[in-house]
Design a protein around this nucleic acid. Structure first.
Length: 753
DNA sequence: TTAGGGTTAG
């Protein structure tokens, strides 16, 4: 009796929700008569109860008990079903839950229990879902209920709990079925738990579900996400029947394993098999083409998407933007972006990322402002992209502004974003803030990337010993160094001239199970070469157990230019011309080595070779932050409104550099320039200026970050090295082709042969 | 009444 009173009270409380839900029902729905009937029944019942709220026990006793209670339960369960279907708030869900628990219905009706589990999972409340599961478990249990709870865990990111529950299930009499395995395998895949995944695979074989289409697709996906693509392919290959999802799972597996050729080959086979692609498949294929960086193939995928009507799908459009971005085709990406009818956060992020990936950080900043104006809220990924754009521009002002925006917008600063912010501050010259962020990270939360960023930051500012000290701390903290750590360390040693320490670091790599890659050899060659140990650098290249890269020979060629070693320079250049025949920079570097030793004939030959190949060195530029703006700055640039301030500052810095003992290297400036002018030219554009800038800790109103030497003639726009304009004086500089007459910010040139 | 494949960053 008390039960029935309780149920009546709960029903009364729930009435408004049901009525509200019924109003939302689509009048054109095919379910309308059924629902109206249910509602009608319920209203009649409710009306009856409302008229007689205080039920007389004797009148109830006079009723046919079975009929009354069955009817009541049916109504209650129907009502709860309806409520659960329309329930979109956790408060109402908890109300329904407590109602069903109090009435005891939840123990009898596992269907309703499962529906509540599903709803709780949808609201991200797996603890409540589990309490429902545990309530029902003792009384009535079946695979469906277990599957529902495992699914709730697997979809809600509680992968360990999903596996523990599956393990518990195996110990009971409840047998897993074809629904169980995809859920459990998903949990294994999400955490790359290959051992557990193989156990589940074994269970699927034992129970005979390993040939179920859904289980097979889940197995392919699990093996792929655990990095065992070939194992996944074995299952895929043995499948008697394959649908689109299975094909896509395997294509995605190859794409994720960075085997784009195999992914595309499989896509072709799928089409030959008569299986039509859908949006999900196209996204994977577009990603594979992006990995190839093949614009022609990208255009084919784009055309395929248009012809099959996939461009109405935002995800496909986003994937196509990312594809063009990776192919370096920014204009095509922008075209797709501009033509989109609807954009989501990923669309904006993809386009922003497209700009940063292709060195157009300023464009990214402009688009970011458009994004904010459009009302699209930046998320942590947006913040990451934009922080890297600020790092690229070296703009401390923009970086700080962005950091403030992240705080104002309450964007979650996770470990990745914190590392990116640290990197940005270090690259913008604000090592103090970078260090402060690093120090604020709890020791246990500092991952390898955090250490790498701070080591690299100290290294790039010339603090080699501090970088080495941080490395020792990293080891003490029990964080294993990776290949990036050693690149940062070797680079730090190179910048600070710590040769012995650099050699030791290189030797220590094996101890930490890091195999030296081409970039590590390049750092070593650069370090040794700059120190004048050209033969040791050359020997190192020759003894490399891996293929010699253009990076190592490039480092040697640069060292030969610094130390005037034409003979070794020629050896390096020959290798470079073979490895990278289209790289204009190496021809220019070698021609400068010849020029420095007055071998003009060879200079001419190289220049002619460049012309014959149609090579032109792209103009290099400095990035200068003045006030709140970032400017690109070319040689002899008087277009920039702040050119006078910039030159004044550079001039004062050059004086300070000389005071701290910097001796400019004049060997490569051509001989037509007066000694005094050579020094002046180099003081503008030496990479050491940037290093000195950090060492001297100058905090000027103008921050200057020299990224590359300036190499452009404003008249002929030809690219060459060590030509510069000296403000207020006319100078004549000769390169391999011409004389360049610089005066008052302009340059005229004429051929000299 | 419960199912398998996807895009942005790092």
């Amino acid at each position: 009796m008390s039960n029935s009173r309780c149920q009546l009270t709960q029903l009364h409380v729930l009435l408004p929700s049901l009525t509200k839900g019924s109003k939302k029902h689509d009048p054109g729905s095919r379910n309308k008569p059924k629902v109206m009937h249910r509602l009608g029944s319920w209203h009649r019942y409710h009306f009856h109860v409302s008229c007689k709220p205080l039920v007389n026990p004797s009148s109830l006793a006079s009723l046919n008990t079975n009929y009354a209670f069955n009817s009541f339960h049916d109504l209650t369960e129907n009502l709860c079903n309806r409520l659960l279907n329309s329930c979109n708030g956790s408060a109402l869900l908890k109300q329904i839950h407590s109602s069903l628990t109090a009435s005891g219905i939840i123990k009898r009706n596992s269907h309703l229990g499962a529906q509540i589990i599903i709803k709780y999972a949808k609201f991200g409340d797996n603890n409540s879902a589990r309490s429902v599961f545990d309530t029902i478990l003792g009384d009535k249990s079946n695979s469906f209920l277990w599957n529902t709870m495992i699914r709730a865990y697997a979809n809600g990111g509680c992968h360990v709990e999903a596996l523990e529950l599956y393990s518990f299930m195996r110990k009971t009499d409840i047998a897993p079925n074809n629904y169980t395995f995809p859920f459990v395998l998903k949990a294994c895949a999400s955490k790359s738990l290959i051992i557990e995944g193989k156990v589940v695979h074994g269970d699927a074989i034992r129970t005979g579900f390993d040939f179920d289409l859904y289980v097979e697709a889940a197995l392919v996906d699990m093996y792929a996400k655990c990095g065992q693509t070939d194992e996944g392919f074995k299952i895929f290959d043995k499948m008697l029947m394959r649908d689109l999802v299975c094909w896509t799972a395997m294509i995605t597996a190859y794409e994720q394993a960075e085997q784009p050729h195999k992914a595309l080959l499989l896509f072709q086979k799928m089409q030959l098999d008569g299986v039509l692609a859908d949006a999900v498949a196209i996204v994977s294929v577009a990603s594979a083409v992006g990995q190839l960086g093949d614009t022609m193939k990208a255009k084919i995928v784009h055309a395929y998407a248009i012809c099959n009507g996939f461009l109405a799908d935002v995800s496909v459009e986003n994937a196509i933007i990312a594809m063009y971005a990776k192919c370096g085709n920014v204009s095509k990406a922008r075209l797709v972006f501009d033509l989109m009818e609807e954009r989501d956060g990923i669309s904006w992020n993809s386009m922003l990322s497209c700009y940063t990936q292709n060195g157009q950080a300023s464009e990214a900043l402009l688009l970011f402002e458009e994004m904010l104006d459009s009302g699209c809220k930046p998320n942590p990924v947006t913040a990451l992209i934009m922080v890297s754009a600020c790092a690229y521009l070296g703009s401390q002002h923009l970086g700080r502004k962005l950091h403030n925006l992240v705080i104002d917008e309450k964007i979650k600063i996770d470990a990745t974003l914190r590392n990116a912010l640290m990197d940005m501050y270090a690259k913008c010259g604000d090592l103090d803030t970078a260090t402060r962020i690093f120090n604020d990270i709890h020791l246990s939360e500092r991952n390898a990337t955090s250490w790498n960023v701070v080591i690299s930051g100290y290294g790039m500012h010339g603090y080699g010993k501090e970088a080495l000290n941080l490395f020792s701390q990293m080891l003490q903290a029990g964080v294993e160094p990776d290949h990036i750590t050693f690149t940062s360390l070797l680079s730090a040693c190179g910048h600070a001239g710590l040769i012995d320490e650099g050699r030791k670091c290189f030797a220590d790599m094996k101890k930490h199970s890091v195999t030296p890659q081409a970039k590590h050899y390049a750092c070593m060659v650069d370090m040794l070469g700059r120190a004048g140990l050209l033969n040791e650098a050359f020997d190192m290249i020759q003894q490399m157990p891996i293929p010699q890269s253009d990076g190592v020979w490039g480092a040697l060629l640069l060292a030969c230019r610094i130390h005037g070693d034409t003979e070794l320079g020629e050896i390096a250049a020959r290798s470079l011309f073979q490895l990278e025949p289209e790289h204009a920079g190496y021809y220019v570097l070698m021609s400068n080595i010849y020029a420095a030793s007055n071998r003009w004939q060879e200079v001419g030959k190289l220049r002619q070779d460049m012309k014959d190949r149609g090579l032109r060195k792209p103009s290099a530029f400095s990035v200068i932050e003045f006030g709140k703006e970032v400017h690109g700055f070319l040689t002899a640039d008087r277009v920039n409104p702040y050119w006078q301030e910039v030159y004044r500052k550079v001039e004062s810095m050059a004086v300070e550099m000389k005071m701290v003992g910097y001796v400019p290297d004049l060997s490569c400036v051509l001989h037509d320039v007066e000694e005094e002018d050579k020094e002046y030219i180099l003081s503008y554009h030496s990479e050491k200026l940037a290093v000195a800038f950090g060492i001297m800790k100058i905090d000027p109103e103008i921050a200057i970050h020299i990224t590359k030497n300036l190499r452009i003639c404003s008249d002929c726009h030809s690219a060459f090295k060590f030509v510069s304009y000296v403000y207020g004086r006319k100078i004549v500089v000769r390169d391999a082709n011409r004389f360049h007459h610089f005066q008052d910010g302009t340059c005229s040139c004429n051929d000299y042969w």
